[in-house]
Design a protein around this nucleic acid. Structure first.
Lengths: 338, 338
DNA sequence: CCTGGCACTCAGCTGTGGGGAGTGCCAACC
DNA sequence: GGTTGGCACTCCCCACAGCTGAGTGCCAGG
């Protein structure tokens, strides 16, 4: 167990390093934080912190830099989430409020997060399976072609083409639409497979083919991990990373383009509150020098999706966490209002 | 007017520079291209080309680099679009064919373009105003709240919330929906304002408020330049740019995040065929060291939107143009099939 | 356990000196 | 007039060396 003062030294190192982006030495520390001890004492503390793996030296005769483990301790024990100012909160709310539709809400959220944190923002669309059904529409496009449109309570709209095995009548489509809607509107999408399981049985045999195709497409649309979408932004902030650049930025940009990777990353964050994954805690190797701060958001008590930011491990954790949390709250509110 | 051989020299310079990313000298030129003349002659030609502004030296005693004007001449007169191989075309088609919906088509197109050209890809969603109406849906969400859903023949779906001045009956909604659809389905969105202008008049006065709110939201959705959306990808390719990096990459990433800027950029390309804007020809200052190759795509004869790539002025123009054109064609086909 | 002192380390900057690729110019040649 | 080989010149780039200074580890004394 580290003494109180050593923790204080670690905190000071993290803060200074985040601020200056340069290894911090013992003398500078005592000058900028009133630790009430001499540089020599701090040096001893640093030696201990280094031995325990919380900090490291880029090379001999350089200052110290926090390790992933050091940031972890900082985040868990030493840092408080920094709440946003009233002005910031107001700005967030009014910016999100004027969104036109869900795409716009998501797009604005991304911009907002990127701007507030000065990092890369990632916002997942509300998951279908965790939303409820607002409406299902079936449109006849051609004699044997339908369009299936799903609308959720969070405003998300998904459409799919359906190629039917045989032509269908206008009446039977209307009938199917009505029956589908009466069964599932207001229900959670996760329940839909159960609710429509026997729907085909109640149709005449010549229509059953069409009905079952429609249903299978409907169910396909709901397959978890296929239905999830996200939007990213603020990649220009990556240029503030550091100097060496194909080495740092490239893999990150590549990882960000792989939405599947990002979705998995967000999915792994099981913590009901905020999750911070630091450096090597991220499984994906392109992201081992970044940290990911994520949190669920939702209109009611329960999260319908996640959002967060990706930035260098050397980031302002309290500020970032504050911004992420605040934005998540307001997005939830906005979704609830629609 | 430049002699035949001087043009040949320019072409050789462009090709070599694009290949090596290094200023090209007279000796290397004569070795790699059989120009049938000595380096000294090439040097004389280069001096002329430089005087005319087609090439430049980064510093005395260095090789030559094409200027924007040089690339312009190369693209206009010296380069042929390089068609893709059969295998590539087949891959494009099968990759796009398995798309589920419009979002997926656009997303796949972006990936494809980015991969083929190894540059940043930009794909605009089919413009609403240049599409035709497939269906309009009105859903009652609350006593005085509607959701308006527009579906185009290109598969694009837009939704908007409508807050009505007064509660409405289920019947009147069905009525409005039916009348709206019968007027505009199959028509081009651009015609919609004209077609619905007098629709409110035919309703009872107590419903007229709701109807006109719905119509105004409908029209608002169609306002050009507000309805346009796009998707970008392949930003990781920016890291192949060069060495100095906040200076080159940063403004480009920033410009790319400004979708408004990109839309304007694409909109400016009036050429019915392919448009290439080189370096300073791009109005936006973040993009003065990039070239933009764009082309319209569409299901029928006429373009419903544009797509293209953004890359360094030092890019493989023939190859890029070939890829952009091919992808645009296949996207058009896929849209037509839906 | 804290502190001042001291020797040591080493990244980063600066300055110097070739090496080499490339140029411009000129005189000769076809 | 266009083309060519020769030649002096320019200047970027790189490698090497020396210096500086921030920072460290260790130790002896408080």
């Amino acid at each position: 167990m580290l003494s109180e003062r050593r923790l204080e030294v670690l905190r000071a190192i993290v803060q200074d390093y985040v601020g200056t982006e340069e290894p911090v030495g013992s003398k500078a520390l005592t000058e900028r934080h009133n630790l009430q001890v001499s540089p020599a004492t701090v040096r001893n503390d640093m030696a201990v912190l280094e031995e325990e793996g919380y900090i490291a030296q880029p090379h001999t005769s350089a200052g110290r830099v926090p390790t992933d483990k050091g940031y972890r301790l900082f985040v868990d024990k030493l840092a408080d989430v920094k709440p946003l100012s009233v002005a910031e909160r107001r700005a967030i709310h009014s910016f999100l409020e004027s969104a036109l539709d869900l795409d716009d809400v998501v797009a604005r959220t991304v911009r907002l997060l990127a701007q507030l944190t000065r990092q890369v923002a990632v916002v997942q669309y509300p998951s279908l399976s965790r939303s409820t059904v607002r409406h299902v529409e079936l449109l006849a496009l051609a004699p044997a072609r339908l369009m299936l449109v799903l609308i959720t309570d969070t405003g998300r709209v998904e459409q799919r083409m359906v190629d039917c095995p045989a032509p269908f009548g206008e009446m039977s489509i209307a009938d199917l639409r009505a029956r589908l809607n009466s069964r599932i509107v207001g229900e959670r999408f996760a329940e839909v497979p159960r609710l429509v399981a026997d729907l085909a049985d109640s149709f005449e045999s010549e229509e059953r083919g069409t009905v079952s195709v429609v249903l299978s497409i409907l169910l396909e649309t709901l397959v978890e991990e296929k239905e999830e979408r996200l939007m990213i932004g603020g990649t220009a902030n990556l240029t503030r990373f550091g100097q060496d650049f194909p080495l740092t930025i490239r893999p990150v940009l590549e990882a960000l383009e792989e939405h599947v990777v990002l979705l998995k990353l967000l999915g792994e964050a099981k913590d009901p509150g905020m999750t911070v994954r630091i450096g090597h805690e991220n499984a994906h190797e392109g992201l081992t020098s970044t940290s990911v701060v994520s949190v669920g958001y939702g209109s009611g008590g329960e999260a319908v999706a996640k959002l967060g930011v990706v930035g260098p491990t050397r980031m302002d954790y309290p500020g970032t966490m504050g911004a992420v949390r605040a934005v998540a709250r307001y997005v939830g509110q906005i979704l609830a209002e629609n």
